[in-house]
Design a protein around this nucleic acid. Structure first.
Lengths: 159, 159
DNA sequence: GAAATTTACTGGTATATGCCACTATATTTA
DNA sequence: TAAATATAGTGGCATATACCAGTAAATTTC
């Protein structure tokens, strides 16, 4: 046992990296619970969001996911390939494509829903149900356009 | 203006996806501030963590970053390619590799530090300094091994 | 209404990240 | 100590995610 270089010492003064670390760990925890379904947690989230909207345009879906439009397009690829979602052209605006679940996608979503509930329940149990709600609210705040505006407006140095 | 399918309606009942959305947005905000340096925020975080440790073994670094060892290896590639970090073999255990900043890496880190401070200051201004500290503490909790254990132990259904 | 501009999406490229299989070393067992 | 096992990394493959440069279709200008 030489000199332990071991930083448990994560550099935790950066709010961004703190969020990233937590996000990686939490993602993995949910992922493990969802594993039997074959869906990644991000994919399940995407399917849920698609299911909730009625054939949401990609643009709108990307906004709801707080995700770049092109990133969304790429992320949908495996789901399309596996026949879980499909794109339909908008009737009135030919630039727009709308996404929807296929029969198979709906089925898999239903089959996976219980696993998600299990994961969420575990999180609430470990973190506290009320704290969990507060956390989601806080995260929603940070993810909001208003917060981005406040951040960008908050010049700390002159310009 | 047809029927607005527009879900501002992000599905925000999942703690994981709430965290992911916030993480994406915040990442982008910091990223924009760091842009002039040419470093991504993740890379800056990594350089900082490497700088703080004294030639930390990859394994330990991965743990501090709450990141998979192989993922860390991949993420280091661009930094090695650009001559910012280098790996050195451990003297006593030939399996171990330690990471350190190069001269160039140290220089770039210093040059970028001010940008990070600016980003962090903007976050604190928009979110509140105290809230910011609390948030980091909360994120550290979620990222901790103890939390993972609690989550995994918290079986909600029988096994 | 033709030209300029904006909008929605696609494809290429690059980083971020995880899992698995494999290799090289250590460490532990028998 | 030879065999079994554990540990630290690497490389391949797959998804996640961003930016940029098109492309096509709408909208706005003049």
């Amino acid at each position: 046992m030489a000199e332990s270089n071991t930083p448990d010492g994560a550099w935790n003064y950066c709010s961004n990296s703190a969020l990233k670390r937590a996000s990686r760990q939490l993602g993995k925890l949910y992922e493990d619970v969802l594993a039997p379904s074959g869906l990644k947690i991000t994919q399940y989230t995407l399917l849920t969001q698609i299911k909730l909207g009625r054939e949401t345009p990609l643009k709108i879906l990307a906004e709801a996911m707080v995700m770049d439009l092109s990133a969304l397009g790429h992320t949908l690829k495996p789901l399309q390939r596996d026949g879980l979602v499909e794109l339909v052209a908008d009737e009135h605006d030919r630039r727009v494509k709308r996404v929807r679940l296929t029969e198979k996608g709906n089925q898999l979503w239903s089959d996976t829903n219980g696993l998600w509930r299990e994961a969420q329940a575990r999180f609430d149990a470990a973190f506290g149900k009320e704290a969990s709600e507060n956390l989601r609210r806080t995260m929603d705040l940070i993810a909001s356009p208003g917060f981005a505006a406040a951040f960008s407006g908050a010049r700390q140095n002159q310009d």
